[in-house]
Structures are given as C-alpha cells and as structure tokens.
C-alpha cells in the first residue's frame, strides 16, 4: 500500500488499519535496533513509540510528510533509540536539521506524556475507566453515570475531577523525580 493511502487511512480515522499497514516496516526497524545492540523487546518499544509520534504528528494540521513513511519512521526510531540510550553528543544536538529538531521535540514531549500515562495507570481501575469514558469516548456524564452506576450525573462529574486531580498529583511527583 502506498504512503498516500496510509495517509488517507489516518485522515479518515481508520487509524487501526493504518497502523497495520505501517507494521510491515517493523522488521527493518527491528534490524536497526538489534544492530545497535537492543533486544527484540527494545525494538518493539521503539517501534511503538515511533508509531505514536507519527500518528500524533499526522494529526497536526501543519505537518507534512516530506519523505516516505519508512524513512520518517526510521529516523524517528533512530532518535528514540538514541534517546533511550542517552547517546547524543553535544555536537550532534547542535548540527540537527530542522526536521530533526521537530522530531527531537516530539520525542521529548512524548516522554512527558509517557509520564502522564504512567501516572494514569497508577490510578484505581474505576478512576481509569471513568476518565477513559469521558476523554476517549467523549461520553456525557449522564451516560457515564448510568454505565458506571453512579447515583447521579453530578457525582460522576465530581468523581471525574477527583480522579483527574489525583492523576495530576501523581504525575507531578513522578515528573519531578524524573527530571531531578
């Protein structure tokens, strides 16, 4: 499948299909990671991260794919691997190309999101479910209250904010320890 078709899949909201197409590139990324001394698991993590970054960037209106998906994902994966290995030299950072700077920023941003994700996963199951229903499936509190058997819409709403607050608190403490 051509890159344009994959693009179209992303645009049409058929992200799952697009991911499946992109997964064909996995063996080559795996080779890259293995050649740099990573394990198969490392390769999977790197590839997953790369796909997340690519899909997020594609959703940005100002993003333009200047090369093939493969080249792009390869470049992103290389960065991610280097990042996890903390192998940048100062020189490398100074001589980055503009697109590379973008990629680099995306990775840094994504790292922050990773922390948020971790914080979210530290929440209780009920909190996770509630937040996912609200933010991912964009359901109204009325429906959520019914689904999760809250006594009223208002309780659901209050509960949601409490969960949110908690997640953010966990994130703040985690993020600080990561950064320091």
């Amino acid at each position: 499948m051509s890159d344009q078709k994959i693009m179209a899949l992303f645009k049409n909201g058929q992200r799952d299909k697009a991911f499946r197409q992109l997964y064909r590139l996995y063996p080559r990324i795996e080779k890259l990671v293995l050649s740099k001394g990573g394990s198969k698991n490392d390769a999977q993590d790197v590839f997953q991260e790369a796909l997340i970054i690519v899909s997020k960037n594609l959703e940005k209106s100002d993003f333009k794919l200047t090369s093939s998906f493969y080249t792009y994902i390869y470049a992103v994966s290389r960065f991610i691997w280097k990042d996890t290995q903390k192998q940048y030299t100062k020189q490398e950072l100074h001589s980055l190309q503009p697109e590379e700077v973008d990629t680099f920023h995306s990775i840094l941003k994504e790292k922050k999101y990773q922390c948020a994700e971790k914080a979210f996963l530290e929440l209780g199951e009920r909190c996770q479910e509630l937040l996912q229903l609200f933010y991912q499936r964009a359901l109204s509190f009325k429906v959520i209250a019914q689904m999760m058997q809250f006594k009223s819409e208002k309780i659901a709403k209050n509960q949601k904010y409490k969960c949110l607050q908690k997640a953010k608190d966990i994130f703040k403490t985690n993020y600080k320890t990561v950064q320091s």
Binding site: D16, F19, Y23, Q48, S55, Y113, A116, E117, F120, Q132
Partner: peptide, 19 residues
C-alpha cells in the same frame, strides 16, 4: 499533558491490535 498520556493508552491499544 494528561490528555497526551490518555491518548497514548488508546494509541497503544490500536498498535497492539495492529501488531
């Protein structure tokens, strides 16, 4: 940031099914 984190969960699920 929080929304980014939540979004990741969804994306990851999709990627795993793709895998």
């Amino acid at each position: 940031t929080f929304l980014g984190g939540v979004e990741r969960i969804e994306l990851k699920q999709e990627i795993q099914t793709a895998r």
